[in-house]
């Protein structure tokens, strides 16, 4: 696929155009018609398979569409990390290719999830959520993402904290791994003992990390990123 992009202004105009022709979808090239079709199919599939009685329906949808999108895009020739880090590519995908899929999750009057706020562009954020949680293969990753401790808040927390000096990808992957393996009773206990009873362990660990990377580079820590992350949990008072 040829990587297509929209800058802010172009995205804003394309969004207006889509809305004024709604419900017709924007005209795009053949390559991207195929991509549109494929994404629509797995969007439907995830929504149909989503158990009715599930408590965190939005999270289920984000995580599952995220992993399918992640897997799908890597298989597209031309897609690479540079593309994934390019907000303008996500704008194109959101506004031109599958605005209907984004609308099903966020409604169509919600420009921040399409193009205006990079950290909130939905497709971008679920792709990166999976990338920062990746455990080497789909099954292991989905097992981590399906842990009951995660919610749409986790996506925000992980994504919005990615640093202004770049992201320690392995550190995030280990945090996701260890956090998903902590028992629910340990987590409940932890929350009960915090001052506000609201600051959950995930947020505490993320904050500790933000403070600690100022002085210590995780990859230079004894035992590398893995031991660095275990020490973060230890500092928060939880053994992993």
């Amino acid at each position: 696929m040829v990587i297509k992009t929209l800058n802010r202004t172009e995205a804003q105009n394309a969004m207006k155009e889509w809305l004024s022709n709604y419900p017709a979808l924007p005209g795009i090239e053949k390559d991207y018609l195929k991509i549109r079709n494929d994404i629509q199919i797995f969007n439907q599939q995830v929504r149909t398979e989503c158990p009715q009685e599930i408590a965190k329906r939005d999270y289920y949808i984000d995580a599952h569409i995220g992993i399918l999108l992640y897997n799908y895009l890597w298989k597209q020739p031309g897609f690479n990390l540079r593309t994934a880090a390019n907000d303008d590519f996500w704008r194109y995908l959101s506004v031109k290719v599958v605005p209907d899929v984004v609308a099903e999750r966020w409604g169509k009057d919600n420009e921040s999830h399409y193009w205006s706020k990079p950290a909130r562009i939905w497709l971008r954020s679920i792709w990166w959520y999976v990338h920062l949680s990746w455990q080497g293969d789909i099954l292991t990753t989905i097992r981590v993402l399906e842990a009951p401790c995660f919610s749409t808040d986790s996506i925000l927390n992980l994504e919005e904290r990615t640093g202004r000096r770049g992201t320690f990808i392995n550190v995030y992957r280990y945090i996701m791994y260890y956090y998903s393996h902590i028992s629910q009773s340990t987590l409940n206990n932890f929350n009960k003992n915090t001052k506000t009873q609201q600051d959950d362990l995930f947020r505490v660990v993320m904050k500790l990390n933000t403070a600690k990377v100022m002085v210590i580079d995780p990859a230079l820590y004894l035992g590398g990123e893995k031991e660095y992350v275990r020490a973060l949990f230890q500092d928060a008072g939880v053994r992993v």
Partner: peptide, 17 residues
């Protein structure tokens, strides 16, 4: 002590040492 090169790139959403 160690000498190291820290590379950071918010645009690439990566960093390393």
């Amino acid at each position: 002590l160690g000498l190291a090169l820290v590379w950071t790139s918010a645009d690439s959403k990566q960093r390393g040492v």
